Simulated assay, not measured.
Amino acid sequence: MAEYVLPDPVVQIAGVQEVARDLVVIPNRRVQLVPNIGVIGGAHSVLVIDTGMGPRNAEKVLEFAADYAGGRELYLTTTHFHPEHAFGAQVFAGEATFLINRAQAEDLAMKGAGYLKMFAGLGEPVARQLQGVELATADVVYDHSYDLDLGGRVVQLRATGRAHSKGDQVVTVPDAGVMFTGDLVEAGQFAIFPWFPPHDTDVSGMRWIAVMQRLIAERPQVVVPGHGDVGGPRLLADVGDYLELLRDETWVRRDSSMSEETIVDEVRALMIERHPDWSGQEWIEQGVGCLCAEHVA
């Protein structure tokens, strides 16, 4: 990622997709470090999912959400603590009730400052969006599950346990069959493994596979990934299949006592052959490293 200048991670309030009644997605337009952002309405309240990176992006999201709400009460949640998803929450203070799961709140408190510094080093466009970031504190923190009544519509917030991060959260709208996955799922992209030993090793390929199996079993009709195009349940299966293949191909080579460098080279080539159109090839190496560390002899 550091070999070229990343595009400016700007949220554009354009091409907003209505994926169900009173439920829209501000698409990321396949711009790196821009998430898909959800806005879900009920009779008396509206929930915003993710903020975009930094206060200027979040201001645009809040303006759109407030106009969409039309006087309804606002809530904000974030799928996990990473900067493009959560580092705009400060803008919603006093305008929306901010609620997240406890593991995510701990991630934000313990690792937020480090991630702010790390992401600011990705280039001037990213650093510019992160100027003025203040790490927010949630108004409501839940342990494992939270049902948010928006008025005639209940939205389910569920902590998944450690996977892409320690504090991942999935948001489901049962009456619409819609699931927001955050970075547990990407469309047309290799899974993002934030495997940065010794600084951050909370990602777990094995636990991630187990989470995907549970999400597939829920059988949502519409899946909103963290990044990439909105799709159907096939998105969940694609990620689950990829993670299992990545594990199997990594472990069979680990069993043969290959060097990790050789494992990376061989597995990377195989994964690109299987998914030549997927972006994010740089994350394959991190995935192999994580799964090597989780290898069961």
Rank of each mutant, 00 (worst) to 15 (best):
E3V: 14
L6E: 11
P7G: 08
V11P: 03
Q12D: 13
I13C: 07
G15H: 03
V16T: 11
R21A: 12
R21I: 05
N28L: 03
R30T: 08
V34C: 02
P35W: 06
P35F: 04
N36K: 01
I37D: 04
I37T: 08
I40A: 11
H44N: 09
S45P: 01
S45K: 05
I49P: 01
D50G: 06
D50V: 10
T51K: 05
T51Y: 00
M53C: 08
G54K: 04
R56V: 15
A58V: 09
E59N: 12
V61N: 02
L62V: 02
E63Q: 14
D67G: 14
E73I: 05
T77L: 06
T77R: 08
T78L: 11
T79Q: 11
T79N: 09
H80C: 11
P83Q: 07
A86G: 02
A86Y: 00
F87V: 01
G88F: 01
V91G: 00
G94H: 04
G94I: 02
T97P: 08
I100N: 05
I100P: 03
R102P: 05
A103T: 02
L108A: 07
L108Q: 10
A109G: 12
K111C: 04
G114Y: 01
M118A: 15
M118E: 12
M118N: 10
A120P: 02
A120S: 15
E124G: 03
A127Q: 11
Q129L: 11
Q129S: 08
Q129K: 14
L130D: 05
A138D: 09
D139N: 10
D143T: 15
S145L: 13
Y146L: 14
G151Q: 12
G151P: 14
R153D: 10
V154I: 15
L157E: 07
L157A: 01
R162V: 14
R162T: 12
A163D: 05
S165W: 01
G167L: 02
G167P: 06
D168K: 00
V171G: 02
P174A: 12
G177S: 09
T181K: 05
D183L: 09
L184Y: 04
V185Q: 00
A187M: 07
Q189E: 15
I192E: 15
W195N: 03
P198V: 13
P198T: 11
V203S: 09
S204H: 02
G205N: 03
R207V: 04
W208H: 14
A210E: 14
L215H: 02
I216Y: 01
R219P: 04
R219K: 13
Q221S: 12
H227I: 07
G228P: 09
V230S: 09
G231D: 10
G232P: 09
R234N: 12
R234L: 13
L236Y: 08
D238H: 09
G240W: 06
D241W: 05
Y242N: 06
E244D: 05
E244H: 04
D248I: 06
D248C: 00
T250I: 01
V252L: 10
R253D: 08
M258I: 12
V264H: 08
R268T: 15
M271H: 00
I272A: 07
I272F: 09
P276L: 03
D277C: 04
S279M: 13
S279I: 10
G280T: 04
W283P: 06
Q286S: 15
Q286G: 10
G287M: 01
V288D: 06
C292N: 04
C292A: 11
E294M: 08
